[in-house]
């Protein structure tokens, strides 16, 4: 990685300080905000209730929700493959697929696993794919949203280019709302860790209401979305 550059900063920031009628500030501590309504949302909900909310809110966005269990996961995934057009398909390069027993079903159905070493060819594969399989890292009950911390292996293209994205959602990843994710990232930063270059919150298929305010599903991202919720994981 080459070091970045910063141009014209001092003059620019001094001008701001001038306008604000004071010297430049070099140390500011963020106050404890008086208003923090975000923390109270869904605090009283049980994990069952959060899961139900996640499903309900996913469906509201036109996402198909399939509840399953660990021992039926492979079968459920196969059902999704059959229902949404089958091959070609892609998946992120994520150790969890093996952990969750999906290696065989991926092999048998010729799912292309993202391989950073193959370079651009991966993108071609994702572009042609009917379905892209991925794991949700954190899942938001409030809105039926999946969050992914993308990198070169957990590639962003898998949720973006195929006609359908199919996210695997271990129930333990479900939290009330974005607040819990951003708090986690904030903590990571405070501990000096580098964050993912692409943190992506995705809520169902892409859509637009730009033409006479009519909602149209399927614009530049996927046209359909499937959430496979594993109840015992």
């Amino acid at each position: 990685m080459s070091k970045g550059t910063i141009h014209n900063r001092d003059k620019f920031l001094s001008h701001i300080a001038d306008r604000l009628g004071r010297e430049r500030k070099t140390d500011v501590s963020r106050p404890d905000w008086e208003y923090q309504p975000q923390w109270a949302v869904y605090q009283e909900k049980t994990s069952d209730e959060l899961c139900a909310l996640f499903n309900e809110n996913s469906e509201e966005k036109g996402t198909l929700v399939l509840e399953t269990t660990m021992d039926q996961l492979a079968e459920t995934v196969e059902y999704v493959m059959k229902t949404y057009g089958g091959s070609p398909m892609v998946a992120t390069d994520d150790g969890r697929f093996a952990e969750f027993g999906l290696t065989d079903v991926f092999d048998e159905n010729d799912v292309h696993i993202w391989d950073a070493e193959l370079g651009e060819r991966n993108i071609e594969k994702a572009k042609q794919a009917n379905i892209g399989f991925l794991f949700s890292d954190v899942s938001l009950a409030e809105s039926g949203t999946i969050a992914q911390f993308n990198d070169r292996n957990i590639a962003r293209s898998v949720s973006l280019l195929p006609t359908t994205y199919a996210a695997i959602i271990p129930r333990s990843t479900i939290v009330p709302r974005m607040t819990q994710v951003t708090a986690r990232i904030h903590k990571q930063v405070e501990e000096g860790e580098n964050i993912s270059p692409y943190i992506n919150f995705i809520t169902g298929p892409s859509n637009s209401a730009d033409i006479e305010m009519n909602m149209v599903v399927g614009v530049h991202g996927p046209v359909k979305a499937v959430h496979i919720v594993i109840l015992d994981a």
């Binding site: 651009e120 409030e142 809105s143 949203t145 962003r156 974005m178 270059p197 692409y198 298929p205 209401a209």
Partner: peptide, 23 residues
Amino acid sequence: VGQKITTYVTNVTPEVGPQSVDG
């Protein structure tokens, strides 16, 4: 737009370490 959250909230930070093919 009266949404609980928009379909995408995408957060991009310059990538450190080995680069993504699709970034």
